[in-house]
Design a protein around this nucleic acid. Sequence first.
DNA 1: ACAAAAGTGTTACACTTACACCCATGT
DNA 2: ACATGGGTGTAAGTGTAACACTTTTGT
Lengths: 233, 233
Amino acid sequence: MRIEFSPDEFKVALATSVVVFGFDGENLKTLVAKKVGSPFEGAWIIPSSVVRAEEDPAFVAKELLARITGKDNWLLEKLNGFAEPYRNPVGRVINIAYYCTIRLDDALENNLKKEGYSWVSVSDIPRMAYDHNEIMEYAKERLKRRVKRRPIGFSLLPAEFTLNNIQRLYECALGKAFDKRNFRRKLLKSQLLLETENFIRSSERAKRPSRLYKFNEKKYRTLTLKGYDFVYQ
Amino acid sequence: MRIEFSPDEFKVALATSVVVFGFDGENLKTLVAKKVGSPFEGAWIIPSSVVRAEEDPAFVAKELLARITGKDNWLLEKLNGFAEPYRNPVGRVINIAYYCTIRLDDALENNLKKEGYSWVSVSDIPRMAYDHNEIMEYAKERLKRRVKRRPIGFSLLPAEFTLNNIQRLYECALGKAFDKRNFRRKLLKSQLLLETENFIRSSERAKRPSRLYKFNEKKYRTLTLKGYDFVYQ
DNA sequence: ACAAAAGTGTTACACTTACACCCATGT
DNA sequence: ACATGGGTGTAAGTGTAACACTTTTGT
């Protein structure tokens, strides 16, 4: 079995893309950018960066995300290597893709605008350059699986949020609606949430304020490690 | 956002490894090979091959598997790209790894012997070169997940097999034992199996022959696509 | 007062689990 | 006859799913 490499086999380039998910309380969104320079000038792409041969793609992705968001403490999850020989005029490129979930705030929004990124709803992704739509679909599937098997929301939701918020998040991620009573019973039984004494009016139209909850961080960590089954219906 | 590549960024090489699982009726096994040539002469490795810049790793992996097994109809599942910059004296190598499950038979065994491969039990994997142990662990985890969420065994078991065989397969893959009655009830309820009129003595020691079952291929395909939850205990 | 969303319980059914003995056959 | 693995049923408990009305507040 030959697995040595001759120098002329080192002819592939690396890129990394990061699928960034955010939640505004109503809809699940993802970041897209407008590409500058050829090829595909002006096309939509997933935030991406070149990886040099001596660099670690995870590190480059982390840097990219830090530049985009202005913060560097996001947890990146590896998606996969996308290795099909798709056509880039310059040569063969392998894309090592990641995803992460981030919490929205105003400072972040301003930074995004400055850097030229836009949020689009995950149910309405534009046609993108390269195989970025494929990577996006893969990321959405992965997020779905994640929601079904591990707690989610800690880095998507604000520190305190309503049961309606988190239900809506689950519904966006899984693409289906849940019965309010069953959802609450199940989530509360998991001990993942702690009731606070605070209330908020969820929208202009809402008259009655709804109770705010926060994550039980200890339980959240435990269940993140050992997993649980949320799936139903 | 810069994602163009200059020529001197095409400096990475590609390899592919294929984790091959087989089941002998008693234990789940995986193929390992002895590496020839430096570096790591004589070390154990997962079956692997160089991928040239213009080649598709999936295709190279398929070819590799065909050469190993003498057949070319195995279904390869992509594992991941292993991209950490580990040290290969010649330069940076990205490994695009796959796994597959194959059915054992005598012709295959002879071919394997000729090609210099050996089966080792998945519960007893030797120390391997490069990051191949990491890839193997990843493959085992993936197989575990697969067993929990989709039917398995069609390409691992002989055309007809006993309930004890398939229970043993599940136990090996998941690393735990199941109650015989509960396991049978659950599996039979899923309609995945069809009873045959044939019986076999499962070993020398077994006196009473046990009934053979075969897969309901239609159901198997349906559940492979839409998934189901096997998980319990 | 009314409009809007928040919040709350019960019942039927299905699935999971734990558990121990008899059966069929070869030697 | 006995040793070996093959094969079978029941009951208690737990989780899921379906379902509709009352409460609180702002306007």
